[in-house]
């Protein structure tokens, strides 16, 4: 809980500083945009945190965003398949790929890093191959469908709640319920905490883990859909690049331990928002070259991790004394 408070304080601090330096930060346009992006990456973050809580990792998420994001406009516009079929088909595909990751990790005992690293290469390669690296997009059609990604519920003249935010709230409530209120969630955390103990308590470790990978991939698919509906176009060679790292960063900042067994949905949401606010701040603040975005995000994560470690040691020492 302290971890979450700490990262929330960092989020507030970054927001206040940015607001002081750049008047553009607190404009309703910017806030609405920030909420939309935080929501999209929040969904990805929640997805990957399920896997991270088991002690695993999913690196394939950016490429899966690319696969779903690029195939959606292509199948609907260029191939001409009705949208409902395309959406449900691609989400099913995501779920299936997640299950496949889970099977490879549990039944063949492959390392999650390797399985999903292969996924990272394969899904992007397949997408680029199918589309021959051509940019795809909705053009002017599909306005109704696109509103799922870029739509808003007007609140004032200038400000509206982005639709993805509402989807995120539903996803977060569902994920929180699953983790804290159900058997499956408790077993998921137990597996990450001590897999041997969980196994000896009769928990079906393999099934729970497969579920985690499946949920991660499904949420990734949903996020991929929403992102392409928001942007309208997608270029296979860079759509979703590095998104897995933004998602993992969100989860880690939000208090998930890469060793597994720890993490909360609310923490991941704050982590995802922090990453997006940082990206936003870099764009808005004149002194920071936009191209150095990764350096800033990397430094912030590093500082957070070091602070956490130092605090942990200090509290450990107090316990001994």
């Amino acid at each position: 809980m302290n971890k979450i408070k700490g990262i929330f304080a960092v989020l507030l601090a970054v927001m206040i500083i940015t607001a002081f330096i750049s008047p553009a930060f607190l404009t309703s346009y910017n806030i609405e945009n920030l909420l939309r992006r935080s929501a999209l990456f929040g969904i990805l973050g929640i997805g990957v945190s399920f896997v991270i809580m088991t002690g695993g990792i999913d690196l394939s998420l950016g490429s899966l965003v690319c696969l779903v994001g690029c195939l959606t406009p292509w199948l609907i516009i260029d191939v001409g398949i009705p949208a409902p079929w395309v959406l449900s088909g691609l989400l099913l595909l995501s779920l299936g790929l997640g299950l496949l990751h889970g099977v490879l990790v549990t039944k063949l005992r492959l390392q999650p890093f390797l399985v999903t690293l292969c996924g990272l290469f394969i899904y992007r390669g397949v997408t680029r191959g199918i589309l021959s690296d051509q940019t795809v997009g909705f053009g002017t059609s599909g306005t109704v469908l696109k509103s799922l990604g870029n739509g808003r519920i007007p609140v004032t003249d200038t400000f509206g709640l982005p639709i993805p935010l509402i989807i995120l709230v539903l996803v977060a409530l569902g994920a929180g319920f699953l983790l804290r209120r159900t058997l499956w969630g408790r077993h998921l955390i137990a597996i990450g905490s001590n897999e041997t103990a969980a196994r000896h308590c009769g928990i079906e470790v393999d099934r729970v883990k497969m579920g985690a990978y499946a949920i991660c991939a499904l949420l990734t698919g949903i996020a991929g859909l929403l992102i392409v509906l928001d942007t309208g176009t997608a270029q296979p060679s860079n759509f979703g690049n590095f998104y897995e790292l933004y998602a993992i960063a969100a989860a880690v900042l939000g208090g998930c331990s890469l060793r597994g067994g720890e993490g909360t949905v609310i923490g991941v949401l704050i982590g995802a928002t922090l990453v997006q606010v940082l990206r936003n701040a870099i764009v808005l603040i004149d002194g920071i070259p936009e191209a150095s975005e990764f350096a800033v995000i990397g430094a912030v994560i590093m500082i957070a991790v070091i602070t956490d470690e130092v605090m942990r040691r200090r509290s450990g020492k107090n316990k001994l004394a």
Binding site: A190, S193, T196, A198, G261, E262
Partner: peptide
């Protein structure tokens, strides 16, 4: 064989 990151209750009831 205990899960250190979980509570006493969660550990006692694990699997049942």
């Amino acid at each position: 064989e205990l899960c250190d990151s979980m509570t006493v209750e969660e550990n006692l009831l694990l699997g049942r």
